[in-house]
Design a binder for these strands. Sequence first.
DNA 1: TGCAAATTTAACATTTTAGTTAAACAAAAA
DNA 2: TTTTTGTTTAACTAAAATGTTAAATTTGCA
Lengths: 196, 196
Amino acid sequence: MPTKDTSTEQLIKETAKRIFFTEGRLHATTQDIADAAGVNRAALHYYFRSRDQLIDTVFQEAMQALSQRLASVMESPSPFRKKIEELIEVFLADMVAYPYQETFMVTQLNTLGHQLIERIHINPTNSFLAEVEREMEKGTLEKMNPIHFLMNLFSLLSYPLIMAPLYCQFFGLSETAFKQLMDERKELISRLLFKD
Amino acid sequence: MPTKDTSTEQLIKETAKRIFFTEGRLHATTQDIADAAGVNRAALHYYFRSRDQLIDTVFQEAMQALSQRLASVMESPSPFRKKIEELIEVFLADMVAYPYQETFMVTQLNTLGHQLIERIHINPTNSFLAEVEREMEKGTLEKMNPIHFLMNLFSLLSYPLIMAPLYCQFFGLSETAFKQLMDERKELISRLLFKD
DNA sequence: TGCAAATTTAACATTTTAGTTAAACAAAAA
DNA sequence: TTTTTGTTTAACTAAAATGTTAAATTTGCA
C-alpha cells in the first residue's frame, strides 16, 4: 500500500534526521543514509530527486520545527516565569533527542553562503522580547538587552548537549552520570536566570 | 630555504583551521583548502600524506590548544573572581576568532566513533573544580555540582557565537550590532555567574 | 657557479559519491 | 486474472574527491 506518509519517504527523512541531528554525523553520505534506513540508495533519489533536495527538505523542516516550537512556547498563556519553565522543559527534551539540529542548520548556512536564509520566514519574537523587557522593568530579571536573556537561555540549554562527547571525556563522566546532570539543569537554569 | 615553520606546511594548516574553525565550512574538500591557501592540491599530500592526516593534525592541535588555554587560565595565580574574568576574556576572544573549533572536534568525534578520544590526554581540571567548590562554600557562588558552573560558563561564552548566523537572522541584527552585543557579554556573564 | 636538497607543480590513477535507467516486484483496480 | 500504478532494486554512468608519480622549480650551501 504505497503513497502513505508513514512509508519509505518518511522513513528516509526520519533516518536522515537521526543521523544528522541525533548522531551528529554531519558528513553522512546518501549511502550512509540509505543503509541506515535499510533501503536502496536509488530509493532516495526516487523520493527526493537528489541529495541536495533531501538535505534541503530536512533543513526546511528543521527550521519550521524550531519556529513552531518557539511560537508555541512564546504564545503560551502562562505567566512569564511559568512560560520560561515550559520553554526549558520543551527545549531540553528536544535537545536530548536532536542535539545537533541547530549545528546542522548553521553548518548548512555556512557552506551554502546564506542563500538559504533568504527563503526563511521567522515569526516575530518581538512581542516576546517586549514581555521580557517588562519583566526587567518589574525587577524579576536583571536589566539588559532582552536578546541577551534569550541567548543566555538557549546557551544554557543547548551547549552542554552539543558538547556532550567532549564533556564526558573531559570530566570523566559516564552516560548515566551525564544524563543525571542534564536533568538537574532544568531547575538550575531557571534559578540562574531569575536569580533566586 | 625549506623546513621553516612559517612555510607552506604552516600555511596549509592555518588555512584549514580558518576554513573549519572560522568559516565553519565543515565539509571543505582538499581542493577547497588548497585553493584558499593558494597552493597545489598535491602540496597538501606532500606535507600531510592524506586528507585524514591533515584533519587529524588539525584536530590534535585544536585539542592541545584547548587544553593549554584551559590550563593557563586555571593555573593563573589571580584570585578566583579575577581568574574567571580572565577566562572569559581569553575564551571570548578565541571564540570570535575560531567559533567552530569545538563544533569541528565534536563532529569529528561523532563521525569517527570516538576512537580519536582514546589518544587524548587531558590535564586534570580537578584542582580547579575543587577551587570552584570552595567558592560555593564561601557563598560567592550558588551551590551546585561544580561541573555545572563550568558548563554554564562555557555555554554562555560559546553558544551565541556558534549560532551567530541564525541569531542575526532571527533578531534582525547587523554584524556590527551583533559584535556590540558580544562585547557586552563579558561583564554580563560575570555578573550572572556571581549573582551581583 | 653548480650541486643537492627541499618544494612545488602538472598529469595521471584510483576511489568514492552522486545520479540514471530499465527491469523486477508488489498491490490495488478493472 | 490481467492491467495498471506505484515502489524497489540491480546495474551502470558521471562526476567529484582523493591519492600518486615524476618532472620542473626553487633554495641553501659547498
